[in-house]
Each structure stands twice: as C-alpha cells, then as structure tokens.
Amino acid sequence: MVRRTFTLLAALLLALTLVPPAHAAQAEIYVALGDSAASGPLVPNQIGPDFGCLRSDRNYAHLTAQNIGASTLRDVTCSGADTTDMYQPQSTELGDVPPQLDALTPDTTLVTVQIGANDVGLTGFIEDCLNLLPPPIGDACNDDYIENGQDTWRLKTDALRPRLTTLVSDIRARAPQARIFVVGYATYARPNGCYPRVPIIRADANYIRATLLYFNQMLAEQAAGAGAGFIDLQTPSVGHDPCTAPGVRWIEPYVPAAPAAPFHPNALGMRGFAVAVTAAVTGVL
C-alpha cells in the first residue's frame, strides 16, 4: 500500500513537471508613446530609424523593457509630439514619422503614454519665464498668462481633458489586451526657484510649479476616468530639479551640463524614471 501510494505520488509529480503552469507569465509586448520627455533628446545614444525624433536607447522605455524582460519594445516616442501626432504623421527636421498609434497591435500587452505638454506649450512656457535680469529691470512672466481674470494655461490644460480620454479609448481599441499607463511630468521648478542659478525669478518658479502640479493632476484624473493607470514622475523627481547640482539633477537647466536638451531629462533622470515606471507596471509600488 505504501509502495503504491509512493508510485502514484511520483507519477503525479512527474506529470506536474511536464505541464506548464496555467498562469505562466508572458513576456511583455511593450509600446512606448510620447513626446520629448519620454524620447530623451540628446541623451546618449540617439537611435534610428527616426533620427528626427531625438530618441535615446537609454530612455525610460528602453530601461523599463530591460528591467521587465519584455520580449518586444516598440518605442515610437518623438520629440515635439502632441496628441494629434498619435493619429497622423509627425513632421520632424529629418522627415515625417508615422502616427504613433500605428505601433499598436492586438497582441500588445503594455502601453505607456506621456503626452500633452506640447499641446499646451510647456517648453515654450518655461523658456518664456527665463529672466536674465531680476525685477525691477526684468519682468515676471506669470501675469502674461492671465486674461480677463482667468489663467489661460489652466484653460488650455482643461481643454485637453477630453482628448486624453479619447486617446486612451483609442489605444484600448487597437490594443485590447494591453495595460495602459499615462505617465506624468517631472519636477521642473522647486518652491521659490534658485535664481540666478536657474534664471527664473521666485514668483515665476512658483507659478511654473503650481501649473505643473495642476497639469499632472489633470493627467491623473483623466487616466483614472478612462480606466488607465497613472505613473507619477513629479514626486520621485523632487530633489532632482534643475536647481540641483550635476550628478544629482534629473532635469537639465537652460544651459545643460550633461547631454540633454534644456529642461529635459538627462541620463540619470531617465534611470530614475525607469525605476518609477518599472515599479508601476510590475505592481511593486
């Protein structure tokens, strides 16, 4: 009886070793969508085939794909992209690139999308606030965005809400199996700034900070409403803003000290963002 029981158990264990687990993890097919905050302009190494997109092989999408062992990465992030470039070809200095949504396929399992800053003119907005001379000679920029008592930057942010909801829906239609994550933007200004190290005066630094907080909150709300995840990059990048020293900062100032576009992530920043993105997509937050 004991021998028969042992034989049956051995046979059962052998059978279990021959049958793969029903819920074995599948390697991700990952599509990264987004603008220059995701593509990594000037961060080594810049790669093709779409060289006009200024895309780095060390951006957070590539690093995350390595971290999670993705079987496929289709990184179509592109500098200068806005929400219209999800649907139609984007013109770059080195030629047109296909609509980003064309990278999605029915077998896609993971999508990150970081978009919207160019719709509202984020980079131009920050550059407008650069002030080489402090008041009273230099002018503050924050009041330039108030018209008839309303903050035009916030109005543009709110106008983007339905487009983001539609975008998530359209991603899901093309990639019904995919988990979708909207990625927020980093910390570009600390409270009160650090004039003259970064030549943005205190009032303008606080305005930039407040408007970016509002913008990221909008992204989080739209992601939640559309049933997508949201990845916060603002919180982990606190203490790594352009005011901090080289080797600490994740976002370069107007005159970069590391290979990166002004007010864009450097290689260290991309590594920090990859930690946040990896944690979010693997559920180990």
Rank of each mutant, 00 (worst) to 15 (best):
I137R: 10
I208Q: 10
A267N: 05
Y60C: 07
V31G: 04
D128I: 03
A38H: 01
Q26D: 09
G116V: 10
A189N: 06
T123W: 10
T278S: 14
F51K: 15
G239T: 08
D204F: 03
G138T: 07
L213Q: 13
P136A: 09
L73Y: 05
E127Y: 05
A22H: 02
Y30K: 07
G138M: 06
R202Q: 14
T108K: 06
A65G: 07
P196H: 11
N266V: 07
A276N: 09
G149C: 11
G34L: 12
T165I: 12
D170F: 01
L212N: 06
A10S: 10
G269W: 02
R154N: 13
T278Q: 13
P20F: 02
A32R: 03
F6G: 01
N206G: 02
I29N: 15
D139Q: 15
A276I: 05
D158M: 12
D241S: 15
Q100F: 08
P256W: 13
N59L: 04
F215T: 08
V277K: 01
I29P: 00
T112S: 12
L133F: 14
V238G: 03
R209Y: 05
G225Q: 14
A37E: 11
T282N: 10
R74F: 00
I146Y: 05
G193I: 00
D143R: 11
A261I: 00
P176G: 05
S79E: 06
A189R: 10
G149W: 00
D107G: 01
P106S: 10
I251M: 12
A81I: 13
P191L: 11
F51S: 09
F125P: 09
F215G: 08
H23A: 14
E147C: 00
L12H: 00
I208A: 08
S39W: 08
P253T: 03
M270G: 04
P41R: 12
R154C: 09
R174K: 15
Q114W: 00
G227D: 06
L268Q: 13
V120A: 00
A65Q: 08
R161D: 09
L8C: 03
G184Q: 04
M86V: 09
D204P: 09
T92Y: 03
D85L: 09
S36H: 01
N192W: 01
Q114A: 15
D57E: 10
L160E: 01
V182H: 01
S169Y: 07
R172Y: 06
L132V: 07
D128H: 15
N131R: 14
L268W: 03
L122P: 00
L110P: 11
P44K: 11
D75A: 04
A70G: 05
G116E: 02
G34P: 11
C243L: 03
P49G: 05
V238Q: 15
A210I: 00
Y87T: 06
T152V: 14
T77A: 14
A224C: 01
Y188W: 08
F51A: 09
Q46A: 11
A189H: 02
N59G: 08
H264T: 07
P20I: 00
D119S: 07
R202T: 14
A38P: 00
H264I: 04
D232C: 06
E93S: 11
D35F: 11
C129F: 03
L132C: 01
A257I: 05
L164I: 15
L110Q: 08
L133Y: 09
H240G: 12
L18E: 01
S39P: 08
L33C: 04
Q217D: 15
C53I: 12
D232H: 07
M270N: 14
L130Y: 15
